[in-house]
Simulated assay, not measured.
Amino acid sequence: MPDAAHRLEPFTPQTEPAALEDLRTRLRATRWPDAPEDAGWALGTDVGYLRELVDYWADGFDWPAQQQALARLPRFRVRLGGLGIHFVHARAVAPAGPALPLVLNHGWPDSFWRYSKVVPLLTDPGAHGGDPADAFDVVVPDMPGFGYSDRPTGAPLDSIAVAGLWAELMDVLGYPRFGAAGGDIGSHVSRYLALDHPERVVAVHRMDGGLPALAGGAPKPTPEESAWFAEVAAWGAGEGAYGAMHRTKPQTAAVGLTDSPAGLAAWIVEKLRAWSDCGGDVERSFTKDEILTNVMIYWLTGTIGSSMRMYHANAAIPPAQLTRRVEVPSGFSLFGGDILSPPRAWLERTTNLVHLSEPARGGHFAPFEEPERYAEELRAFFRPYRAAATGRGGRYSTGR
């Protein structure tokens, strides 16, 4: 059970009516930029689509209903590393045997929202066409500076530090061994959990292979790896301006994005469209309500600046950390609509690769875009590792 220093507090955020009225006032007073005729999304966010989204946000979007829906997830806060950390902790429903503890790690621009659809599928697979024996105890923390977790007031935390916090969180919750999974920055956090806590992480599942980094004296890249390196460089030149801003001058962008809800929506919705498997129509992957729920979490918590600062922290991670090989059993689901999928040779070079699948549908936000398929990917990958985490043949306490 948690000790006094790690007291768990149930958490259900409430939004003051004045905050919603201020939001509507700002939305209705948006000062719109001009745009070249028929520019569409070619130069960034389509201003015509954004106007439509902002009009709906001001006069049609029902935030209390969305907040109530999110409240169905069992959510808590706890002090870790001097910060208040918000997390979902959903226990398995009627599992056929011990449940596997699993920490799910989100990325940017999102939060626990990324996994809000998939949590019930993992905790109660029997009710969703799966095998009850594949049930998980699911933990989904908001990283510091994201969502409802505290914003660090000093230096931002990098992925290594966050992985350390999550190892502590799983200990507080009574899980000596567990699985880890994630995408985007959450993939990096999952990687460092496996690197720095291999005695606790039974297996790690990721949706990407990170960015290229080779240690001195490493074998020469294969032709497939070299082609991928070139693809990454080309993508960075054409699509990476947001990341350069986050890594170098996040406070400059944070001023406008924290002050203007339309600007915040523009910054986020362009990435939801570009990185999802939507064929250019963002509402093929996300409804307006879903888009705005994600944006609202950033708006109400004022965390767009603090979330961007994590890029600045990660940019300072020493190269020696970036080239460490993961020896914990590693699995990857590379969804067909995602960006920059690495070749198998790279995954074998950098991890103890035991599983690789390539679902045809789904993009960067696959847990939200294709929750049923993502849940099945996790069930299949972690199935051989359940005994190692749940203590069959040994003592295991879930803290129940």
Score class of each variant (00 low, 15 high):
228 W>N: 09
195 L>D: 01
127 A>C: 13
224 E>R: 14
371 P>I: 04
167 A>H: 07
127 A>Y: 13
314 N>W: 08
13 P>Y: 00
363 G>K: 03
270 E>T: 10
317 I>F: 06
67 Q>E: 15
295 V>L: 06
22 D>I: 13
61 F>N: 01
61 F>H: 05
297 I>R: 00
362 G>Q: 05
333 S>A: 15
145 G>Y: 04
44 G>D: 06
329 P>G: 08
286 F>K: 02
383 R>G: 13
84 G>S: 15
106 H>C: 07
371 P>S: 05
145 G>E: 01
92 A>M: 05
9 E>W: 10
68 Q>V: 15
140 V>A: 03
186 G>D: 07
248 T>P: 00
166 W>K: 08
225 E>G: 09
303 T>S: 05
113 W>K: 00
364 H>F: 10
156 P>F: 00
189 V>R: 01
67 Q>N: 14
226 S>Y: 10
238 G>C: 05
324 R>P: 00
132 P>N: 09
54 V>S: 00
28 R>A: 15
26 R>C: 03
151 R>D: 01
123 T>C: 15
121 L>F: 05
124 D>L: 12
129 G>Y: 12
110 D>L: 14
293 T>R: 07
176 P>V: 05
310 M>G: 03
163 A>I: 10
64 P>K: 10
220 K>L: 15
142 D>F: 03
246 H>G: 04
84 G>P: 00
315 A>L: 12
383 R>F: 14
34 D>A: 15
130 G>H: 05
134 D>F: 09
167 A>E: 03
264 L>F: 01
264 L>G: 02
3 D>R: 05
103 V>E: 04
217 G>T: 12
147 G>F: 06
309 R>E: 07
149 S>V: 04
38 D>Q: 11
38 D>L: 15
356 L>I: 11
354 V>K: 10
251 Q>M: 13
129 G>C: 13
217 G>E: 09
355 H>G: 08
250 P>G: 06
26 R>T: 05
61 F>G: 01
26 R>D: 11
373 R>Y: 08
132 P>W: 05
33 P>Q: 13
92 A>V: 07
338 D>G: 11
81 G>Y: 02
120 P>A: 13
222 T>A: 13
275 W>Q: 11
96 A>D: 13
270 E>I: 04
9 E>D: 10
191 R>N: 09
392 R>A: 14
265 A>F: 04
77 R>Q: 14
153 T>A: 15
305 G>P: 03
343 P>R: 13
337 G>H: 06
19 A>W: 05
239 E>V: 13
185 I>W: 12
218 A>T: 10
373 R>P: 00
339 I>M: 12
35 A>P: 04
352 N>G: 10
222 T>Q: 07
293 T>C: 14
121 L>H: 08
41 W>K: 06
105 N>T: 14
332 F>K: 11
310 M>E: 03
371 P>V: 08
327 E>T: 15
342 P>F: 08
179 G>K: 02
230 A>Y: 08
385 Y>R: 12
302 G>K: 11
152 P>H: 04
384 P>E: 14
176 P>D: 09
250 P>Q: 07
389 A>Q: 02
109 P>T: 06
337 G>C: 08
210 G>K: 09
66 Q>I: 12
350 T>S: 15
294 N>H: 07
333 S>Y: 03
290 E>C: 02
70 L>V: 11
116 S>V: 04
378 L>G: 11
